[in-house]
Design a binder for these strands. Structure first.
Ligand SMILES: [Zn+2]
Ligand SMILES: [Zn+2]
Ligand SMILES: [Zn+2]
Ligand SMILES: [Zn+2]
Lengths: 158, 158
DNA sequence: CGTAGAATTGCAACATTATAACTCAATCCA
DNA sequence: TGGATTGAGTTATAATGTTGCAATTCTACG
């Protein structure tokens, strides 16, 4: 975790890193990072706040891309498949993955005030998987955790 | 946890227990368990599978209840507020809470094959909250975890 | 009782999120 | 080159969830 969403930083670095990750991952997997897919990834990474699919449409339209829902959802599905973005189910929104090269559960803390989300590589998340498999005799294939509350900055303002 | 969703059992006991819990909780809090609220709770508890809001409409209509979306969503909101049901965000669905008297995070394992969901009172879930608060300096107010995979029975069939 | 205030419900319209079905264009590979 | 595969354009529609307001029912209090 290089940049914390709640710590001021030059966010262009986040975007650049995300694009570089995407390019190398696509090259590696023989997947095509087409203009629209790349642009959608950039837009998702334009902040640390989860963004809705429909939020992207106006920007894409203004830039001359096709901007019908299927276009965006297809791009998002592609990015989800490669693990470059995560879906935040409680918000019906999407956010860039900050560790796209590792197989990991989707685990985020989301500030209910400023909306910024921080991905977590919590060891307890892995422990949870193991415990559930043991307790229930099941096989866990996917795991999403969404924590909501107040980030450090928003805590101070209250 | 009296009944495991993946263990055969007389499910009427689950429904009865849920209704009794609801009645006493409502009495305690001065909340009104109106016919439609009670019926929605029963229907949510009619199986161990999360149920969509719109799935309830036809049944309610057939029983003479008003069956417009707001009716169901209001009943569900009421039940959510009392902690009698949980929302499964990844499925846009609702399921009865199996421990409605305790303040707890929403944590479920959901079988992707048979659809049955089991609520979990995992200690790791609590540990996760604490770890995140420590690591990020945030205040966690809410937490939902959804694990997907195969339950014991469906594991055998594969 | 009887009535004011609050909570609940009925109802119509609408908003948001996501997908289906079919077409055509671009790219890849033999 | 030619055929297969993949990606994108287009239109329509499905699925999920909300707003606003009027009508009704319940509750509390005198
Ligand atoms: Zn950043
Ligand atoms: Zn914040
Ligand atoms: Zn049961
Ligand atoms: Zn519960």
């Amino acid at each position: 975790m290089t940049h914390d969403a709640y710590t001021p930083h030059n966010h262009h670095h986040c975007i650049d890193a995300a694009l570089n990750n995407a390019r190398s991952l696509c090259a590696e997997q023989g997947a095509r990072l087409t203009p629209i897919r790349q642009r959608v990834l950039e837009l998702v990474w334009s902040s640390h706040k989860p963004v809705g699919a429909y939020d992207l449409l106006p920007t894409l339209a203004a830039e001359g891309f096709n901007s019908a829902p299927p276009t965006v959802y297809r791009a998002l599905d592609f990015l989800l498949g490669l693990g470059l973005v995560h879906r935040i189910s409680t918000l019906n929104a999407f956010i860039g993955c900050s560790q796209p090269n590792t197989d990991h559960a989707s685990c985020f803390f989301i500030c209910r005030d400023c909306g910024k989300a921080q991905e977590l590589a919590a060891s307890e998340v892995q422990a949870l998987t193991a415990q559930v498999e043991r307790a229930l005799g099941v096989k866990v294939e996917q795991q999403t955790t969404e924590l909501t509350g107040l980030c450090p900055a928003c805590l101070e303002q209250h």
